[in-house]
Design a protein around this nucleic acid. Structure first.
Lengths: 340, 340
DNA sequence: CGGCGAAGCCAAAGCGCTTTGGAAGACTCT
DNA sequence: AGAGTCTTCCAAAGCGCTTTGGCTTCGCCG
C-alpha cells in the first residue's frame, strides 16, 4: 500500500494525503480525519527510502565506531546503548553504527554526512580539541558530545558528568580522613574525563597544601590487568600511597587483587575509591570489601542523549547547550582513616 | 556531483555511466575506464538514498536490540561488535541497531523488513524454537543466527560454538581428577547455549555413571552477584560439590568471592572452570588463582558473521549452512584433584 | 550481398515520497 | 458588485538512481 493507492481510494490527490498525514495546516480537519483513518485501517506506512530521497532525512542517529585490531570497544558502551535504547525504542529511532578505522574516523564522518545517512550523531570519549567535534561542527550536522572537549573557538552541545567535582569530593574525603599520600589510577589521560578527574583530585590536595606525586599517578587503558599492575607499582614503591582513587570499577578489581597479593588490606593499609558507571553485572557493594564510589549512571546519560538528539533533529533544541550532571559520592567500607 | 552531471560532462547517458560503474558487461572497456576515471577524479559517489529507492537495497545489516527497563544488554555484545566492526570497517558496511521492547520484537522485525531498512539481520542468544528465527525465515530476509535454535521444520544458517563439547570436555577433566559431585552455574537456561552446556556436562558425568543433582545446577542472569549467590548456595549445602563449571567469567568472579568468604580455597576445596568469551578487560589468567576455561573468542565470531552476512547479501552464500566452532579447553591452576 | 546477431549506447519510465506553484471556490470588505 | 483573502485542494516537478526496451552500427556468415 503506497501513497498513490491510498490517495486514489480516497479520491484525493497524493499531495493532500501527504499533507494530511504530516500535519500540515492547509488541510480540512474533516479530510485529515478521513485520511488518518484510512491510513491506519490499511496499515499504510510511508516508504522511508522514498521519504529519504525526497527530504534528505533518514530518521536515524549515527555513531562512528572506532575499531581496529588493537582497538577494544569499551564495555561501558553497552550500558550507554541500553540507555539510548530506552528512549529510542518508544520513538522508532534507530541507531546506525558505522565502524571506522580508529585512526581515520574523519573519512567515515564525511561519508555519513555526505550520504545523509543519519540526521544526527553523537560523539563519545572526546579529547581536548577533539578533531571529530570540530569536524561535525563544520559539517553542520546536528550532534551532541557525550563528555566534553576543550579549546575551541566555538561552543557546542554536550552532556557530561562532573568528573572534576566527583574526584575533588573523593579526594577531599580522603584528605579529611588523614591521608597525605594519594594516588590516581586513571584512564587514558588524553581524554577529557581523565584530565578533569586528575584536576579535581589535585585541587582537593592543593587545598590542604598537598600535591600528587608524579609517581603516584598513572594513565592506562581501563582493564583489570592494568589496574593490578598500576596498583602494584604504586604500592611497592617508597612512599607508597595510603589511598587510591581509581577511574573504573574494572580496574578497581585489579587493585583489590594487587592489594591482596601484597599482603595488605583495604582499608587498613590503603583506602580505595573508584568511579562507578553503574554496571548491572558488577556492583561496588559486592566487592569483598564494599567499595566506595563516585557514581553516575551511564545508562541514564544514554537515554538523555537520545532524547536531546531527537529534540535537535526536530528543531526543539538549538544552540550550544551544555549539561553537566552531578556525581554521587557513595561511601562504603573501602575507605578509612590513614594508617598511623 | 550526481550521476546526471557526471554523465553530461562525459557526453554519455546516465544509463551508460551507471552500468559502467556497476560493472555491467554491455559497456566498452575503454568507455568504462573513462567513466571510472572521471568518477574517481570528481569524487562521485552514488547517492545511497536514491539507490535504495531504486533497488531496495540499503547496504546495511540490522540487529534488533532487545531493551526495556528490566533488560540489560549483555557485555559480551561489545566484543561481538568489535569483531563485526573488524570486518565491516573495510567493507563500508554499516550496522543499524533497532531498539525494541524485549517482549515484542516481532513488530520491529516486521518494520525493518517491510521498510527494507537493512539487507540482512543477525539474531543472537536464540532459544529453542525461537520465534524470531521462524519470523525472519518466513519474512524472507537474509539472516544468520549467532548460536543455535532447535525444533524447526526448516534449516537455517547459523554460527555457533560447540558449547556441548566444551562443557563435556571440562566435566570429563574434572571427573578424571576424581571429582564426583560437580555443579553447574549456568546462564539463562531458556537459551540454547545454556541447554547445550548442561547437556555436555551431564553426558560426561553419565559416562562415568554419575549424575548432576538438581540442587547442583542453577540458571541465572550472568552477573557477579548471581555467581556469588549461586556459589554460596551450592557450597553451603550438604553434599556440596567439589567442582564447579560456570558459564561466564563474570559469574566466576562471584564464585571466587564466595569461596573466599566461606574460608575455602580454589582448587584445594573446590575446582573451578568457567567459559571465557575472551574479554580484553578481564582475563582468566589474572584471577587470583588462574582460572581454567573453555575459551572461544566472541570477537572472531562477530567478524565471521559480518563476513557471512555480506556473502549472503551478495548471493555468494546460500542455503542453510551451519557452522560450529570448536572450543579450547585451557587448563590453569583452578582445577586439581578432588579433596580426599 | 542480404540478413542476423552481438556490441555498445540511449531515452525514458520507474522507485514512492515531498513540495512548488497554482487554481477554484467561499467569504469578507468597501 | 468587484476586488481582495482565505481555505482547501491538485497537477506536476523534483529527489538521484536503476532498469527496461529499443536503436545503431558493425562484423560475419551463407
Amino acid at each position: 500500500m503506497n501513497l498513490k493507492q491510498l490517495a486514489h481510494m480516497l479520491a484525493l490527490s497524493q499531495t493532500t494525503v501527504s499533507r494530511a498525514l504530516n500535519g500540515y495546516p492547509e488541510v480540512n480537519e474533516e479530510t485529515r480525519r478521513r485520511v488518518m483513518d484510512a491510513a491506519k485501517r490499511h496499515g499504510y506506512r510511508p516508504n522511508p527510502s522514498a521519504r529519504r530521497l525526497a527530504t534528505g532525512k533518514s530518521g536515524m542517529i549515527g555513531y562512528v565506531l572506532p575499531t581496529g585490531a588493537a582497538v577494544d570497544i569499551d564495555p561501558h558502551f553497552v550500558e550507554f546503548l541500553s540507555g539510548l535504547g530506552d528512549y529510542a525504542r518508544s520513538h522508532e529511532l534507530d541507531l546506525v553504527l558505522s565502524p571506522a578505522d580508529a585512526d581515520d574516523q574523519e573519512t567515515t564522518y564525511r561519508r555519513i554526512v555526505a550520504n545523509r545517512q543519519v540526521d544526527a550523531v553523537y560523539i563519545s570519549s572526546p579529547r581536548p580539541a577533539d578533531r571529530r567535534v570540530a569536524l561535525v561542527n563544520t559539517l553542520g550536522i546536528p550532534f551532541i558530545v557525550h563528555g566534553r572537549s576543550e579549546g575551541f573557538d566555538f561552543d557546542y552541545p554536550y552532556l557530561d558528568i562532573d568528573n572534576e567535582g566527583a574526584f575533588h569530593e573523593a579526594a577531599r574525603l580522603l584528605v579529611q580522613l588523614g591521608h597525605r599520600r594519594l594516588a590516581l589510577i586513571n584512564g587514558d589521560d588524553r581524554e577529557t574525563f581523565a584530565i578533569h578527574r586528575e584536576r579535581g583530585l589535585r585541587r582537593a590536595l592543593a587545598a590542604s597544601g598537598l600535591t600528587l606525586g608524579d609517581r603516584h599517578v598513572c594513565s592506562v587503558v581501563m582493564t583489570e590487568e592494568n589496574g593490578y599492575r598500576a596498583a602494584r607499582r604504586l604500592l611497592e614503591q617508597d612512599g607508597a600511597p595510603t589511598a587510591i582513587a581509581c577511574s573504573s570499577l574494572i580496574m578497581a578489581l585489579g587493585v583489590v587483587r594487587a592489594v591482596r597479593d601484597l599482603g595488605l588490606s583495604i582499608p587498613g593499609d590503603v583506602s580505595l575509591i573508584a568511579h562507578d558507571d553503574v554496571f548491572p553485572w558488577l556492583k561496588p557493594e559486592n566487592f569483598s570489601v564494599p567499595l566506595s564510589t563516585t557514581r553516575s549512571s551511564i545508562r541514564l546519560a544514554g537515554a538523555r542523549i537520545a532524547e536531546r538528539l531527537a529534540a535537535r533533529i526536530s528543531g526543539l533544541e538549538e544552540g550550544a547547550r551544555g549539561e553537566v550532571w552531578p556525581v554521587d559520592l557513595v561511601v562504603r567500607a573501602s575507605v578509612a582513616g590513614a594508617p598511623a
